[in-house]
């Protein structure tokens, strides 16, 4: 049943570019899918108590490695993306291994990751001669002489192509979430998040389990960052590597629902509606109004709806028939 629903939903989504001609809607959907993928990656750690404020770092690494390699060395994103993911994974291990080995958990782990984002952002800004600093950077265009796409440069002026790329990417993200959910890894990570010592004593290799999930999460986020950069054709530290981006991930996943498969996706829809709604409704007159609202809502969600929108809805549905 679930399988059939998924096929129908995917088919419907795949038809959207055929039915919708509005570039704006297509743009919103593409960013939605990319963010939903990144949030799903974040939630792999978040759902097991590994709250990271450092995923902006992984996203930034993915986006910047790809763009810099292309601009400076002419290396195709086909090679740049795996390299970016590899660097993000290396950074994740560098931070994760000591944390997990020496039992840095909970708030302390969150603080370490908070610092990580700032370090990456500062490095991008400090190397402004190569990275463009806080002004950001644009991948050198390969679309010359009327060309509408370039496979080597992974550039394309047709939004529909990016829509399908983002759709596949999001589906793979959901598939990864599901694979982990059905594996022994989930049991191990649940046990670790509830009682770490007891998990070790029943034979869970705590350090390795946490490191594995961190590596998968970081690699996904870096990939999402690279895709975001290729689609937007412009990145800057604020949009891909800042504390703001890291917090946005935390907020979206908590709002959508950290413990259910489509929670992060619902979070992406929710945050996007919020930002776009504010932009259209109020305009850009009040600076960083969206961040203020995010902050307020985060507090409210954590207090009143810790399982998020989708988590709450599913709980209601489960409880519904029994109450009736």
């Amino acid at each position: 049943m679930i399988g059939r629903n998924w096929i129908i939903a995917t088919a419907l989504l795949a038809c959207v570019p055929l039915a919708v001609s509005s570039l704006y809607i297509l743009h919103v959907l593409i960013t939605l899918l990319i963010w939903a993928f990144i949030y799903t990656g974040w939630s792999l750690m978040g759902r097991f108590g590994l709250v990271s404020f450092g995923h902006g770092a992984f996203m930034g690494i993915g986006a910047y490695v790809v763009t810099l390699l292309w601009n400076l060395q002419g290396i195709s994103p086909w090679i740049g993306i795996p390299l970016g993911m590899l660097l993000a994974v290396a950074v994740a291990v560098l931070i994760g291994y000591p944390c997990f080995r020496f039992r840095i958990t909970g708030h302390y782990f969150a603080l370490v990751t908070l610092a990580l984002t700032e370090v990456v952002r500062s490095i991008i800004i400090a190397l402004r001669d190569t990275t463009g600093g806080s002004l950001g950077i644009t991948p050198a265009s390969a679309l010359k002489d009327g060309a509408t796409w370039s496979l080597t440069a992974l550039q394309c002026s047709d939004k529909r192509v990016f829509f399908y790329a983002a759709l596949v990417c999001w589906l793979v993200g959901i598939w990864i979430w599901q694979r982990i959910d059905q594996s022994m890894m989930r049991h191990a990570m649940q046990a670790i998040s509830q009682e770490e010592d007891a998990a070790a004593s029943v034979g869970v290799n705590v350090t390795r389990a946490k490191l594995t999930i961190t590596v998968i999460s970081a690699a996904m986020t870096a990939f999402g960052g690279a895709l975001y950069g290729q689609y937007q054709q412009y990145i800057n530290p604020e949009t891909v590597a800042s504390l703001g981006v890291s917090l946005q991930m935390v907020f979206a996943v908590i709002a959508g629902g950290m413990f259910v498969k489509l929670g992060p996706t619902v979070g992406a829809v929710f945050t996007l509606l919020l930002t776009e709604g504010l932009r259209v409704g109020i305009g850009n007159q009040i600076n960083s109004l969206d961040s203020t609202i995010y902050g307020l809502m985060l507090v409210l969600f954590i207090i009143y709806m810790p399982d998020g929108i989708l988590g709450k809805l599913m709980e209601k549905r489960r409880a519904g028939p029994r109450a009736a």
């Binding site: 046990a191 509830q194 007891a198």
Partner: peptide, 8 residues
């Protein structure tokens, strides 16, 4: 203190 996994 038993250290069960409380939410399992």
């Amino acid at each position: 203190h038993r250290r069960l996994f409380p939410r399992l």
